[in-house]
Design a binder for these strands. Structure first.
Lengths: 215, 215
DNA sequence: ATGCGTATACTCGTGAGCGAGTAATCAAAT
DNA sequence: ATTTGATTACTCGCTCACGAGTATACGCAT
């Protein structure tokens, strides 16, 4: 599934959703997005913003409505969403919502090459991560609670989701770290000797040959 | 933090980790990665693979050791990792492991524009997602259990992590869906009338003006 | 012996993504 | 009065990612 969108960048989604409210010029989009806390999850890349706006216009999803100049400032082109744009927006949301897609996280990548470090160092680094995760989580949770006082849930669900996932990551890291520090992680001794001497334990060597995930 | 890597693509990490085992040529890297189930999380893009290998060589992290031709096949260049490459690998893993970075997920993006759909449709789509998630989760869990019979935990942690996160997502979606179908989601009535009539409830209109996340 | 499908092993062109730079305006400070 | 620093508002050009295409060889059937 996941048909190719004319404009695939997720920033395009944000732009379309901003323009549904009212027409605006690119820089204003950025401000609005920032106000709505979208920049928390998605850093605003200036290059992308203007490229995306161009592409959206090229594909008729938005259109330049007017071009204002105030003072000696560079001219600002105001864009509005078209019917095609509105259609694309809802269709896109429908797809994103209904069909999960496995995305590659950097932490997953790190875990998949965990064996290049020694167990002790891995534990140390995981402890650092856990610390950072805990702090960040507390902050975000507080901010969410604060916002929930006057913003309806509907506009906070994405943050709730992120926090749910963050909590799961914290749990996982805490668990793994616990196993490493308590020494209950299975195969810890083999990993230890391998990292010290570079010697691959015999039962592992055989696995290397035939591949880890045989069908 | 997160200093710019000379080669930033995560496929480079996979390549380096493959070359730590033994020198090989690009196509073999792909095979090895596929055998180790890396293609599950990270689809192998041929263009990227060869670009990444080139870049790694350019920056001295790997080097061409020999160039074999067998039969009339195109010549295969065999690459080995350098000391600089080994250093980069461990340094990179250290960073990835210790410092969390918030990544933008497509589902988060979808949730942040949830209001463009009607509550009923949102519920319907979330139900579809939940279904897909459940199926995929069961499959992956079974595969993990199967693999765990002869592969050490050390090489399965990344899949355990993914499953932990997947479980959290399932829980979140199930919860949200429940609130929508049972009607207990706060502000559901407002959302409903807005989606039918396009009328923004007064207490919301005011929020729009001053921004959702004021500092 | 010849055709056909599949595995091997890349190459190349396109286009997307983005950081760093630019330049004007405005407010406050010296 | 003018220097400084922040805010507004973009532009440019490089790099990177990647899909689709290419071409050869091998095995198996006809």
């Amino acid at each position: 599934m996941a048909k190719r969108r004319k404009v695939g960048n997720l920033m395009a989604l944000a732009v379309l959703s901003a323009l549904v409210q009212q027409p605006m010029h690119p820089y204003q989009m950025a401000s609005v997005l920032r106000e709505h806390g979208k920049d928390q999850n998605m850093k605003i890349k200036w290059g992308s913003l203007y490229t995306v706006v161009q592409n959206l216009e090229k594909h008729g999803l938005i259109e330049a409505t007017e071009s204002v100049r105030q003072g000696g400032r560079p001219e600002r082109t105001v864009y509005g969403i078209t019917d095609a744009g509105r259609a694309e927006l809802t269709d896109w949301v429908r797809e994103l919502l209904s069909t999960p897609e496995q995305e590659q996280s950097r932490f997953t990548a790190a875990l998949s090459v965990l064996a290049v470090l020694s167990p002790a160092e891995a534990a140390d680094l995981l402890a650092q991560r856990l610390d950072a995760l805990d702090k960040r989580f507390a902050g975000r949770q507080a901010a969410l609670a604060e916002a929930a006082r006057d913003v309806p849930r509907l506009f906070l669900v994405e943050e709730e989701y992120e926090l749910a996932v963050a909590e799961a990551e914290i749990g996982f890291v805490r668990g793994l770290l616990g196993e490493l520090t308590s020494g209950t992680f299975p195969g810890l001794a083999d990993w230890q000797t391998f990292s010290e001497t570079g010697v691959v334990p015999p039962e592992l060597a055989e696995l290397m040959e035939r591949g880890l995930h045989p069908q």
